[in-house]
Simulated assay, not measured.
Amino acid sequence: MTPPLAVDIDGTLTGPDRGLDPRVMPVLQEWDAPVVVATGKAFPYPVALCEFLAIPITVIAENGGVVAVAGEEIVFTGDPEGAWAVAEEYEAAGYDLGWDEPDFVNRWRETEIAVALDQPLDPLERIAADHGLEVVDTGFAYHVKTPDVDKGKGLKAVARTLDLDPEDFVAVGDSENDVATFETAGRSIAVANADERALAAADEVTDDSYGAGFLEAVEAIRGEDVR
């Protein structure tokens, strides 16, 4: 029996160039159980991915800040006003969010803000802490978010909506924002390019990286071992 799947996008379904690995598309389209796209990206991105794959829209976006299941209520958590206050104070201190204009990374965010990895982290963490927020490094950006919001809680919310147990899910990901998902799902697999926290939290680790690692994880889910 095919288990439901919770899968990250960047670094998991993509290549190192951040482009979607085309080999993952038929796998997601043909998955014979619910697929939850769980990402740090802004809300419209996972919705669009589901739409273009022609699979049900079941998403956890913005590191758990937005949870949506097609036909159900969209739930927003977090502190967007606080996150933007952090961004304004960070910029007033002489720093920058680090994105080209127009800023498509943050334009449609509902619950957090993202700062480019080439920007100074220490002052961002300090300012975020002053506002009661935290910074999470997803490997693609620094995300300023509410501390009690994460993908794991998002997965629990999705599971309730789908009348499933979170432990029914297999989670596949690559970064520290996937750790909560790994701890919530019944089985977790990190792709080889995952960061140290994700590697330590995962039940299994693939030999291959990025989209190829996801395909290897799929084989493991279907009955073949991963180291």
Rank of each mutant, 00 (worst) to 15 (best):
A171C: 09
P34R: 06
L124N: 09
P22S: 14
D100L: 15
A92Q: 11
D118M: 05
P4K: 03
A217F: 04
A83L: 01
P22N: 08
T2H: 13
E112W: 00
V7Y: 10
D8V: 11
S175E: 11
A42V: 06
A200T: 14
I9D: 09
A180V: 08
E125A: 01
F140W: 11
G71Q: 04
Q29W: 07
I127M: 13
P4I: 07
K153P: 01
F182V: 11
E183F: 02
R107K: 05
L28Q: 12
V172R: 03
R227F: 10
K153A: 12
I55T: 09
E125G: 03
V179C: 06
W84I: 02
N106I: 03
L162S: 04
M1Y: 00
A116K: 13
I60E: 00
K41A: 07
A201P: 11
A38H: 03
T12D: 10
N193D: 12
V59E: 12
G213K: 03
E219L: 02
A83E: 05
R109H: 13
R222T: 01
L97G: 03
M1A: 07
E101I: 04
A93W: 07
A85L: 09
E204G: 04
D195Q: 15
E72M: 04
A202C: 05
P123H: 05
R18G: 02
A180W: 00
R126N: 03
Y210A: 09
T111F: 03
A33E: 09
A190K: 01
D174R: 12
A194S: 14
E101T: 15
K41R: 14
F169L: 07
V172D: 06
F140K: 09
E216N: 03
F104D: 08
T111A: 03
D96C: 02
L13N: 13
A93T: 13
P16D: 15
I55K: 06
K41P: 01
V115I: 10
P147V: 01
Y210S: 05
T206R: 03
A93N: 11
L49E: 06
I221H: 02
V47G: 01
R197P: 06
V37P: 10
W108M: 09
W31Y: 12
S209L: 02
A194H: 01
P26T: 10
A70P: 11
P44Y: 14
A33S: 11
V170Y: 01
E72A: 07
L121D: 00
N193I: 07
A92K: 03
T184R: 10
S175Y: 12
L215K: 09
R187E: 03
L117K: 12
E62R: 08
F169D: 00
E224N: 00
P16K: 15
A220M: 03
T14I: 14
D178V: 11
M25T: 10
D150N: 15
A141M: 09
A116Y: 02
P3R: 07
P3D: 13
V37M: 11
A198L: 12
A68K: 02
R18H: 08
K145H: 14
D195M: 04
A70K: 15
T14R: 13
P56N: 12
